[in-house]
Amino acid sequence: MTAGTPNTETKPVEAAPRRIRGRTREALIGYLYLLPAFVVFGIFFFYPLGRLIQLSLFDTRGVFANQRQEYVGFSQWAEVLGGEEFLDSLWITVQYVLYTVPAGVILGVLLAQLANRKLRGIAFFRTVFSSTVATSVAVASVIFFALVNPEVGYFRNVSWLSWLNTQNPDTALLSVAVSSIWQNLGLTFIIVMAAMQAIPEDLMEAATLDGYSPTRRFFKVTLPLLGPTLLFLVVVLVIFAFQAFGQIDILTQGGPQGRTETLVYRIFRIQFDDVNTAAVMSIGLFALTFVVTLLQFGMLERRVTYAE
């Protein structure tokens, strides 16, 4: 902020031993303050990553699971990552991304654009559109259980919607996805709305004076300026979709016929019986998340430079 103060050394010249002591002290405090966080990271982030790799290289299946450890190298990686089970779940996960991400972004932009007006009652509509941010995965899933469950869900009554249920192999994943789209709506709306309100009004007025129609204004001014926000949103929603678990656990348990068994759900299901395969799949999931998150960091970096 106030970069006016020059960075000159105003400290009096000290005797060397004291300064060194001061520096050591500062370093000690620095490490000490990091310690609590790093204890947690060490135990629950770094250790598991190492252990996952170890588990993926060994075969610990067998009668005495804890005693028998046979080193099998990367053969397990090839076997699992190229195997039908993993690829099936990967494909289902990708489908889940395709169902939830574009729909989520488009709906967020649509609602925000409609709500970006100063008319009477706008606060009410904005509250409604943001409201689903208060729901958790479990709540959203329970709410949609009452709609898409084939036996007790409301949609079975509605002829034009009855195809959308969790028993139909072709639409089970979509009906789970609908619950996620609804749950994410509040978040996407809030984020897009905030970005739209940050667009300078003069810009819109200038475009209006230039004779831009509202549609043209939206596509030529609003959308390009929303670009970075939308990219951010895409990344967040993709990661949400990769991590989908609660909605599957509550609505379908992976069924029917394994048609909704996403990667995380499969890992969860098999980890008790086959920890080695679960470990390799976890590494696969890690690689996927890694790529997407790096993308996000790249974008953030650009955002920061841009904003400065």
Partner: peptide, 24 residues
């Protein structure tokens, strides 16, 4: 380096470490 390690944990969602953490 420590800061990079901190940021690196963002790359590790709980879903990845689930299997091991449950055992811990």
């Amino acid at each position: 380096v420590l800061f990079a390690l901190t940021v690196a944990t963002l790359l590790l969602p709980i879903e990845v470490t689930l299997v091991v953490n449950a055992r811990t």
